[in-house]
Amino acid sequence: MNHPTLVPDDTDTGTSRAEQVGSGPPEPSRHVLLWWLHGATRLLLAVMLLFNGVIKLGLWQFGHPDVGEALIALGEMSPMGLLSRMVGFSPLFQLLAGLAEVGASVALIWRRTVVFGALVSTASMTFVLVLNLGYDMPAKQLAIALLVMSLVILAPWAKRIVVAIIGDGPVPAAVRPRLFRSERPQRLARVIAPVTGLVVLMATGLSVAAAQPTSSIDESLPSGVWRAPADDSAQGSSWEDVALGNIRTDGAATAQVRLRDGSLLTGTYVREGNTLTLTLRPLQQPGQSALQYARTPAETVDLAYAADGDDRLTLSGDQDLALERDANGSLLFDRGFTWKIRADDPFER
């Protein structure tokens, strides 16, 4: 059985061919320019990967499952909403995806790990593109651009990678990026370039993390899913079901209201003492952009609430109704995600 033969790579010893045999012939100017463009692509891709990775590691991109979204039915969701909720329910998925992107970003900074970083980036962006296409996400073009950038970075080592995988013939020596025609500034670039790239990545990561909203979990009343009793049709309220979230982002948590006519209102609520202020809109419609939806008039509802134990809630103010806790309506959020082995068996419904 024939095995690939590795051609000795002088770069593995840290000494270039030019240093071994003298200054060597100068690098053609067009090659130097291409390496500068290659380096700029590496840095840009690294920054974009780091941004995407940090917001995944912090669970900011897809967020946490919130019981305030419990009322929307599967058939009412868009494919994008379905994917966002599915990924949000798996912190493990988000952490692994974030580690892959952050790891690829850092690997792209150093010459000896650039191929590994570009390979991880290529695999990651291929997977992201498939998800974006399969679930009608809006970032298809961005995923394609990042995938193309990853392949561009791999291009100088493409033959080496293919031969190493196929295993037919000797593996070509690794290509060394050259930013300067002469050797002295080239040696300085080997130190300055990765340090500069690492500083840029650190500044990017810190700024992204600092720009994210603050969040906290408050599972006290009135959070949960509440339903009007079946025999209260005599009440004058147009509301039937209410879901109030327990994850507060900059002070506001998610809220949904199912009306008696079957339509759904969604938005947020703020609690101050025993007073709730809800800001609600109908669901975003097909063909309506996110900006248009954000500009649609929102209904503001001010309510006072009183709890009778943990299972009964009375709302008064702009709406007057008595509600009972619907424990079955929040099972998805109550069960949630756990790192532990469950005592009961998983079940599908």
Rank of each mutant, 00 (worst) to 15 (best):
F347P: 04
L45Q: 01
F337V: 11
V148Y: 00
V301D: 02
W226P: 13
E19C: 00
N52D: 07
T266Q: 09
E348L: 13
G329Q: 11
Q284I: 10
R17Y: 00
L147M: 07
D320A: 09
D320K: 02
N328W: 10
A155P: 02
P185M: 03
G53D: 05
Q319P: 01
P8V: 11
D232L: 15
N52P: 02
A230R: 14
V130L: 15
Q235V: 03
W110S: 13
L59V: 12
N328T: 14
G273V: 14
L276M: 08
M202I: 15
W60D: 14
R227A: 05
R335G: 10
D334R: 15
A46Y: 00
W60I: 09
T266N: 05
R342N: 13
T126N: 05
A123T: 03
S29R: 05
Q256E: 14
L131D: 01
G22E: 00
L71Q: 12
N2Y: 10
V106H: 03
R248A: 14
K159H: 08
E19T: 00
V32A: 15
I72M: 11
V242Y: 02
T122F: 09
L108K: 05
Y269T: 04
P25N: 02
E324S: 15
V208K: 00
A306V: 09
G53I: 08
P4Q: 03
A307D: 07
E219Y: 06
S207E: 11
T279L: 10
N2K: 11
Q256K: 07
Q212Y: 06
G58D: 09
G167I: 10
R85D: 11
D302M: 12
V54P: 04
G167A: 05
A306N: 01
L278V: 02
E183P: 14
R312S: 02
S16V: 04
A307V: 06
L323R: 04
I144C: 11
G245H: 00
R271I: 10
